[in-house]
C-alpha cells in the first residue's frame, strides 16, 4: 500500500467532439491531508472527481485511488472511498435516518451496524433533531451535512467532496468546514475537495492544486503558492506636506517598488514580511516623512490564479466585477 491517497499520471478525459475536459493531469495527493482542487466553472474539476470515483472512465492515463487502480479494480476503490457529489439529489421523501440506514445496507453492513452507524453520524453532523424528518424540509446546509454523513457510512479512507459548499450561506459554509476539518483531524480521513472559492481552499486545504482548462497550472501549499507570487505588498499613503516621492525614496530601500499600486503614496514588495514592516515605519520616521495610512497585504490565491492564467477567479472578493 502506498502512502498516496490519489496518484494520477497523464490523466485525460476527452468528450465527444474532441473537447478535453481533463488534459493530462499528473497529481499526487498524500494520505492524511485536506487537498483543495481549485478552479473556475468548467475547468475540469468535476470530470476529474468523476474519474477518481470510478464514475467516468479516463480516455487515457492512470489513476490510483486509495492504493488501487480505478480502471482495474473499481470495486475495491468504491469500498474505500466516500463520495459527496455536487448537487447530489437526496430523496426529499425519505428521512435522514432512513437514508443513512439504506446507505449502510448498500455497503453490505449488518442491520444492527447500520442503525448504530446512522445514530453516530447523525450526531456527528448535528442532525439528531431532524433525523426523522423528511429531507424535503431540510435547509441547504442540513442537506449538505446529511450528504457528508452519507458519504461516511462505511468509514472511507479517502473522501471526495465536489464543491461541498457551493450555494451555501456563509454560516452554513463555516459549519461544514469545521465538520470536514474535524473529520480529517480526528478520523484521519484524507479529503479531496473541489471548490471554486479561494477562501475555501485557503481556509481548509493544506495543499492546493489549481486547474484551468483541464490542466494543472499551480500545485503546492497555499503558503508556498502565495510566496511564489511574491512578497507581501506594503502600501503607504503620504500626509501633511510629505509627497508620494518622499515615501517612495524611503521604501525603495526595502524591496522592489510596485509602481502605481497606491494613489498618493507608494508601495513596495517586502521580502522581510511583517518584521520588515516595522523597520520600514522606523525608516520613514527617521527620514521625517509623514504618512496617513499604512497597509501590508499578503498575496492571495487569486493573485496566484491571476499570475498562472492571466484571469481572476470568480468568487474572489477582489475579482467581483
Amino acid at each position: 500500500m502506498s502512502d498516496q491517497a490519489v496518484e494520477t499520471r497523464d490523466l485525460v478525459r476527452e468528450y465527444k467532439g474532441g473537447v478535453k475536459a481533463v488534459d493530462g493531469v499528473s497529481l499526487t495527493v498524500e494520505s492524511g491531508g485536506i487537498f483543495g482542487f481549485l478552479g473556475p466553472n468548467g475547468a475540469g474539476k468535476s470530470t476529474m472527481v468523476r474519474m477518481l470515483t470510478t464514475l467516468l472512465r479516463p480516455t487515457s492515463g492512470t489513476a490510483i485511488v486509495a492504493g488501487h487502480d480505478v480502471m482495474k479494480e473499481p470495486g475495491v476503490v468504491r469500498r474505500r472511498i466516500g463520495v459527496a457529489l455536487q448537487d447530489a439529489a437526496i430523496d426529499p421523501y425519505m428521512t435522514g435516518r432512513e437514508l443513512l440506514r439504506l446507505q449502510g445496507v448498500l455497503h453490505g453492513m449488518k442491520r444492527a451496524d447500520c442503525r448504530a452507524r446512522a445514530d453516530v453520524l447523525l450526531g456527528r453532523v448535528d442532525l439528531e433533531n431532524a433525523a426523522d424528518r423528511r429531507v424535503g424540509t431540510y435547509s441547504g446546509g442540513m442537506r449538505r451535512r446529511l450528504d457528508l454523513a452519507l458519504s461516511l457510512v462505511h468509514e472511507p479512507v479517502v473522501l471526495f467532496l465536489d464543491e461541498p459548499t457551493t450555494g451555501l450561506d456563509p454560516v452554513s459554509r463555516v459549519t461544514l468546514w469545521d465538520e470536514v476539518r474535524r473529520l480529517n483531524v480526528e478520523h484521519g480521513t484524507t479529503v479531496f475537495l473541489t471548490t471554486q472559492y479561494l477562501e475555501e481552499a485557503d481556509q481548509l486545504a493544506d495543499r492546493v492544486a489549481i486547474i484551468d482548462g483541464g490542466l494543472i497550472v499551480a500545485d503546492g501549499t497555499p503558503k508556498a503558492l502565495k510566496a511564489r507570487i511574491g512578497y507581501p505588498l506594503l502600501s503607504v499613503v503620504a500626509a501633511d506636506g510629505s509627497t508620494p516621492d518622499d515615501v517612495a525614496r524611503v521604501l525603495s530601500g526595502f524591496g522592489e517598488m510596485v509602481p502605481g499600486a497606491r494613489d498618493g503614496g507608494a508601495a513596495v514588495r517586502l521580502p522581510g514580511g511583517s518584521t520588515a514592516m516595522a523597520d520600514a515605519v522606523r525608516a520613514l520616521d527617521d527620514a521625517g516623512v509623514r504618512f496617513a495610512e499604512i497597509d501590508l497585504a499578503e498575496p492571495t490565491l487569486d493573485d496566484v490564479f491571476l499570475a498562472s492564467t492571466g484571469r481572476h477567479l470568480a468568487g474572489s472578493d477582489d475579482a467581483t466585477v
Binding site: 470515483t53 464514475l55 472511498i81 457529489l85 455536487q86 447530489a88 437526496i90 446507505q103 448498500l106 453490505g108
Partner: peptide
C-alpha cells in the same frame, strides 16, 4: 430517470452496491 438526473444513481454507482 430522476435518480439518474439527480445524482442518486451516481451515489449507487460510486458505492459497492
Amino acid at each position: 430517470a430522476t435518480d439518474i438526473e439527480g445524482g442518486f444513481f451516481d451515489r449507487l454507482v460510486a458505492s459497492p452496491t
